[in-house]
Design a protein around this nucleic acid. Structure first.
Lengths: 163, 163
DNA sequence: CGACGGTACTTGACGCTTCAAGTCCGGACC
DNA sequence: GGTCCGGACTTGAAGCGTCAAGTACCGTCG
């Protein structure tokens, strides 16, 4: 049985109200990452993603993490992480070494210089996060944002563990 | 008078509650654009940003816009837009011509093939926006998201006109 | 104990964005 | 009416991310 026009369902376009929410949200989605990047680039000469990697290592006991674990905690592909860590290594902030117990794994560890880099960069970054988001919203809005983000994240990847 | 440690103000770190909002939000900020890109790449072989450019032109009377105006409505640098429009032109979806009235401006106009590309791509994209965001949230949450986005956008650029 | 297979990366090429010049046009000033 | 000057792009190179192969290690199975 051939299917023709009458079978093609009309797309469910966004209503006026829905657009009024989606458009500003989409705009924020484009501009906020750029703004966060810009502050770190300007004040600390690192990208937001490089900061995330350094910061995550700095919060870990031993300041060391397997590449795979690091990749998932910063939501990146292993390939992306590998390139970034290579750059961080070249700048002297991270060192890589094969895991002694299992040669398949490789551990990334934050150097002393890397620790100092995080300490120097974090206050400015946190201040920008406050300025643009946290201090811009009320306590109620922050909670709403948490719930909304959780819903969306669950739709993107239902298997990822929630926060 | 030399200023020393006691003058360096302690950074205002995020509280536990604030982190509980910020972390999921930051995660969404990284993953949602990737998810939207992935759908368009997979189903229509264009990037999200290329889609935005085509869609914006398609909504304009005459399907034509000056490069500068197009750049601001899609929140991009003129340079980025120029590169993208060049690619879209190569694919036959957009044409560029100097503005007849003022040779300094250049107009980008959507071709018939470009229009058809938008028509073909839009339903799948809208469906993904619904699946990941609009249909994932209640009406109240959508309104909260609109307000929150407005606040943040205003912090990023107080001079940009609101929606 | 040697081949196989799967996991954990690493690498290289390609595409897109940014940044810094460069070009081109038109109004203003002399 | 030439010469500035500033705005509107355009271009080329350099950096970052992705994708597809490649390598390296270890457990397993014949």
């Amino acid at each position: 049985m051939a299917r023709r026009n009458e079978d093609r369902v009309e797309p469910r376009w966004l209503s006026g109200d829905e657009q009024e929410s989606w458009l500003p949200f989409a705009s924020m989605l484009m501009k906020l990452p750029a703004a966060l990047d810009a502050q770190l680039q300007r004040d600390s000469d690192i990208t937001h993603f490089e900061y995330l990697v350094l910061a995550r290592l700095s919060m870990t006991p031993g300041r060391t993490l397997r590449m795979s674990d690091l990749a998932t905690t910063v939501s990146a592909s292993l390939s992306r992480l590998s390139h970034v860590v290579k750059r961080l290594e070249r700048r002297g902030w991270v060192r890589r070494a094969p895991c002694p117990e299992n040669g398949r794994y490789t551990n990334a560890t934050l150097t002393e210089a890397g620790w100092e880099k995080v300490v120097a960069s974090a206050p400015g970054h946190v201040e920008e996060v406050r300025r643009l988001v946290v201090d811009a919203l009320s306590g109620a809005e922050l909670r709403q944002l948490r719930d909304i983000s959780g819903r969306v994240l669950d739709r993107i990847d239902p298997d990822a563990n929630p926060f």
